[in-house]
Amino acid sequence: MNLTTLFLANWPAIARSLATHIMLVVVSVGLGTITAIPLGIVLTRHRRFAPAVLAVAGMIQTIPGLVMLGFALVLLGIGTVPALAVLTIYSILPILQNTYTGISEVSPAYTDAAKGIGMTAMQVLFKVELPLARETIISGIRISTVYIVSWATLAGMIGAGGMGDWIWTGLATYNTGYILIGAIPSALLAFAFSAALGGLQRLLTPRGLRRQP
């Protein structure tokens, strides 16, 4: 069957898959972000724990996605929740790492000056450290998002839907059309997320920190 006709015949289902895919990404990266940033901040306040925590998080990162989804399937069963659980855990590490690095790399001159002129610990964090680390943190979110778009294609395996469904079906039935319908939009989705967050990163970088042309 011609790809165009296949697409036209299935486009409502494709749109649903795409929506599900986006939902999986946004929810898991969202949850990952609100977990990872505070955790990263806490780590900068308790540096002795940082190496251990980052090492564990790094180890989790090396577990293949297929394996993690397998765990989720066996432990939590089929569906959206197990998939979101796995994706959220995956999304944490890059954001955690970048939050920690970003804040740690803020020059002590700034924090010293901030303290010295009478900022409270919270003011130092919100007015100085986070703005200066913002670019790095957003870059962590971007890396995370690109990963999650990729892992979310696997979520189809445990019945969470998304563009992966089409690829799985295509692989199972050796149907090129289905593969393309799943693979191309998921790739485009990854580019779109990456570009959007890249733009956001530039937009949110304080002007005084942008590279001078």
């Binding site: 020059s107 000056a113 303290k115 010295g116 002129i117 009478g118 100085v128 703005p131 002007r207 005084g208």
Partner: peptide, 17 residues
């Protein structure tokens, strides 16, 4: 500290401001 001025060698002007 808000009632005492403070200047350091590394200047410490906030680059985002």
């Amino acid at each position: 500290r808000r009632s005492i001025g403070y200047v350091i060698q590394q200047i410490g002007l906030f680059p985002n401001m």
